[in-house]
Design a protein around this nucleic acid. Structure first.
Lengths: 188, 188
DNA sequence: AATGATATGGTATGATTCGGACTATGTCAA
DNA sequence: TTGACATAGTCCGAATCATACCATATCATT
């Protein structure tokens, strides 16, 4: 099958999850970072395409450090922050992942659509209210994306802006969809 | 005085999750159903908007039956299938949910986008391969949606087709997006 | 009749993830 | 000196997940 690097001895069969790659990748992009740094970075970007609770950003780097993919140094004074840096092994792990076709994951989880699915049991008012609310929601989302796009001065490659672009398109599709639902039912 | 509130054998504060509503809603749509029936129905529809493992479709109906929202009757012979039906309480619970604004949940989880986010560390070949694969993936998805739409003869209200329509639009947006990624990098 | 492939129908469980409450420390301004 | 706010991190029970496993029916082939 694949061709693992033989050089590393006794090391660990650490299991790398999507969150692992988020951590490795972000540290590679940003340089040495604290968990809090990562948390903020995630909030402006990856969150929209792979949500997870921030607490994992405190647990996961420690795991990766134990496995030798990161190093950590802790401040000795007041805050005692931990700063994580990428090791060569970490860089390799990231590259391996980027070079391999990832498992296909494209999951959508939309509560409003679930309700719509059972719309036969709603009355007209409920349905239009739902649709209206969804238009609002996705319109907001679009604004947020646009805001982020503006505030992110085009540093270091436009690649980081691409995901935002997809998010935008998807939200636009949603706005169109729900607007048409509204139109079809008599608007109020 | 001699009647302390402490014993609450009466009704239970059962917590209803999205999966609960899937079960209640599907049984309302289809009539009395077995877990297996639900499983198949989910596979053709809700799965695309709220994925969850099929084992929950065996656990959840039992919970709901315990709480009095469903009734069950088990075959006495061979297969001993359990058939679940909606009670009035179940119907009420479903209606309550449909009448209330649901918590806003719109989560997207896309592994390919995560890789794209770190595309700075890919070489051109890897990126085009990723994009090509995504075009393939979403094109397939579109076909599947269209197939389902065809095979579902327009029974009982077009409402059940609406979610499929949104799925279609989103996948189309994805195809467009990844195609443009391909175009921007020199195509091979 | 025996084999085996496939669909049906269901259970069990350890591992992961989730979510969010909780505890602090610095910082700046009123 | 108070209080608001951002920063920084920990913890843990609850919920969800994945998936392996078990079992019965059906039908086609040998």
């Amino acid at each position: 099958m694949s061709k693992p690097k033989t050089t590393l001895p006794a090391s660990d069969p650490i299991r790398l999850s999507p969150v692992s790659y988020v951590v490795l990748g972000l540290i590679r992009l940003r340089g040495p970072s604290t968990s809090y740094d990562l948390k903020r970075a995630v909030g402006r970007s990856i969150q929209y395409f792979w949500p997870f609770p921030h607490s994992q950003l405190y647990v996961e780097p420690n795991r990766l450090a134990d496995a030798g993919l990161l190093t950590q140094e802790q401040e000795s004074d007041g805050r005692r922050r931990k700063l994580f840096s990428l090791t060569d092994a970490g860089r390799d792990a990231l590259n391996d992942w980027l070079g391999s076709a990832p498992e296909q994951v494209f999951d959508l989880r939309d509560m409003a659509i679930m309700q719509l699915f059972f719309a036969d049991f709603m009355n007209a008012g409920q349905l239009t209210e739902l649709a209206r609310e969804q238009v609002r929601f996705h319109t907001d989302r679009i604004s947020r994306f646009e805001e982020i796009a503006e505030n992110t001065t085009g540093f270091a490659g436009q690649n980081r802006m691409l995901p935002l672009d997809l998010g935008l398109r998807i939200s636009q599709a949603c706005v169109e969809f729900w607007s048409e639902v509204l139109e079809k039912r008599g608007d109020t």
